[in-house]
Write a protein that binds this DNA or RNA. Structure first.
Lengths: 194, 194
DNA sequence: CTATGTGAATTTATTCACAGCA
DNA sequence: TGCTGTGAATAAATTCACATAG
């Protein structure tokens, strides 16, 4: 579902008002009937003979994905990956706002990047004041678990984890793990050995 | 499958010689029967009553995923994300080696990071000499398509794409796209609205 | 006439349960 | 006895085809 949102955002930028399942389909590389099934599962947002109203559809999907309000997000680990996260413009599409950043490097603590002042990672307990419920972990894998523990204690509800280590959390906390290397590892399988 | 490899690598580091499907299972958070099905699909590598020989199993999986030889990989875009990729130790597990890096920023071209000298992105056509068939795209989304075109022309067979834009390539080229924001966007759905 | 929405058919994946080998 | 390997059962996802609404 999230990829539809991005597609719709692009179509909206192009000034279009409505779109058919097949047009959206080759925009996001998914079959038209797949798209229709997905939308119909949540109730059907289109008008027959015409297509889907982009603005309205976006709004509906955002509601479904609970992206209809700004989501404050904390970043832990301001290394290269963390900096990339801070600089990444793509979060805006989904209403995410990086509100706080933490690191354990004294040289970084106190510096301000993109209007965000980096705080000491030991002060993760102060997260409550930001009204954040999401966090991004971009620390070396050895530190990932203890950061996760601190985040859970601070009341975070969802974690995007960039470390390849499996992270143990209470099951009420949702974790999505992205491991760059694991994803890259899927490529060679599809490549003919020449 | 790739995640099993990482789990096995960790278990191997711990000095273990063999592992049962259920032990590996809670190591990678997958059910034991799922693991057994997956392995049996490729022929079954274990011994009954004992489990799987870690060393041998790793070797077999690497062969299946075509990770049994070093895979040279090119990096395009040496911004924060690119630097994170260069510094990331996790690629070693899978036998990946970042062999070349490209950027369009004159201030970066010529600099050497991690033994890799950054080259001008316009020289992507020289890729042939590196014997690379994989590439990582870590450039702003506006530039992603033209970089992809150049990579295809240079003979790349697989691309790991960090830009959120859909990339058009000949269908013999495999693309895996990672969009950080899209992944993050999946989290709120699972979070109770309190 | 166009493009959605949806039941039915098909394919694929997951889960189970247990026979069979060390 | 312990753990794999696999057929059978179940569930889920995909694909199709078409009635239906604008």
């Amino acid at each position: 579902m999230p990829i539809y949102l991005r597609g719709l955002a692009l179509l909206s930028q192009q000034g279009l008002g409505s779109v058919s399942s097949s047009k959206l389909a080759d925009f996001v590389s998914v079959n038209p009937w797949q798209i229709r099934k997905d939308f119909s599962y949540f109730g059907g947002f289109g008008t027959r003979g015409v297509g889907y109203d982009i603005e309205n559809l976006s709004k509906q999907i955002k509601k479904i994905l609970k992206l209809d309000a700004v989501r404050n997000t904390a970043l832990v680990g301001v290394g290269n990956l963390g900096l990339a996260v801070l600089a990444y413009p793509g979060f805006r599409t989904y209403g995410f706002c990086i509100t706080a950043a933490f690191d354990n490097d004294p040289a970084k603590i106190g510096r301000t990047i993109n209007n965000i002042t980096i705080e000491d990672v030991s002060r993760l307990d102060t997260l409550g004041k930001y009204e954040v419920d999401l966090a991004i972990i971009a620390v070396p894998e050895q530190a990932a678990q203890q950061v996760a523990d601190a985040l859970v204690k601070a009341g975070i509800k969802g974690i995007l984890n960039f470390s390849p280590r499996r992270i143990a959390v209470p099951k009420k906390v949702k974790v999505i793990t992205i491991d760059i290397a694991t994803d890259l590892a899927r490529l060679p399988y599809y490549i003919p050995s020449s």
